[in-house]
């Protein structure tokens, strides 16, 4: 049996992972170096293509569009475009049509509930970065009748509205490219390993993610095995 708790392990994971970052980069570089075109197919993208396909928003917010919005402005947009599925206050519970008891996602509340027998998964209790929320609204909402018909101001305002409803920002706080990435989400440190694993481990114990070991783990006789998964039972 492992002697360290998960919480403790997370604390030790971070410096350890940081220490290993150069290793990660080195390995990735090994795969990436010395590449010149072999087949000479394809063409450079147009500016329009790059614009269309470079708007997923990562945690650094580099791709955030120009625009802004607050919860005050977001409330009427939410009422018009979101409340029919997610509830007036984002409380969820609206049944999926013919969904046999399934309901649309709850977006508000549940902070502090994840380690209880009845965890409530919402925007506030779950997402580690506010950009995750912004990106998903911009890219995929509202599903009905048609996603991707919100203006950047709308998306900023809806994001602000949900952050406000979750008690993370004030009602008048304006979200824009600069302020959104500064928002501290309650569950920022609720995930591990942090940073996420970008290279497979080879099960030799040097830098593999700590969740990997089964209780009776022994190194495999086949080095180079790649594993990115949840725990598996140890070999017999």
């Amino acid at each position: 049996m492992r002697l360290t708790s998960s919480i403790y392990r997370i604390r030790i994971t971070r410096p350890r992972s940081n220490f290993l970052l150069p290793v990660v980069a080195l390995l990735a570089c090994g795969a990436a170096m010395a590449q010149s075109p072999t087949y000479k197919v394809g063409r450079p993208p147009t500016a329009e293509e790059l614009h269309t396909w470079d708007n997923l928003v990562g945690a650094k917010g580099k791709e955030l569009p120009i625009g802004s919005g607050s919860a005050v402005e977001g409330a009427p947009v939410f009422a018009a475009k979101c409340a029919m599925c997610h509830g007036k206050d984002g409380q969820g519970g609206v049944p999926v049509p013919e969904g046999f008891g399934f309901t649309y996602a709850r977006l508000v509340g549940g902070v502090g509930s994840l380690n209880t027998p009845k965890p409530i998964f919402t925007v506030g209790s779950r997402m580690p970065y506010a950009t995750t929320l912004f990106d998903y609204i911009q890219r995929a909402m509202p599903v009905w009748p048609m996603p991707r018909d919100l203006t950047p101001d709308n998306v900023y305002a809806l994001t602000a509205f949900l952050l406000y409803k979750n008690g993370i920002i004030k009602e008048t706080d304006v979200m824009n490219k600069a302020s959104l990435v500064e928002v501290q989400m309650p569950n920022r440190h609720g995930f591990y390993p942090d940073p996420p694993q970008s290279e497979p481990n080879d099960k030799d114990g040097t830098w593999l993610p700590l969740w990997e070991h089964g209780p009776e783990w022994k190194p495999t006789t086949k080095p180079g095995a790649k594993w990115y998964g949840p725990p598996v039972a140890a070999p017999r």
Partner: peptide, 20 residues
């Protein structure tokens, strides 16, 4: 990029509330 489908779902939340 911490997309919705690698955060709000497709993570394994443990009884202590921490998700892998």
């Amino acid at each position: 990029y911490y997309m919705q489908r690698e955060i709000s779902a497709y993570t394994n939340t443990k009884p202590n509330g921490i998700s892998s």
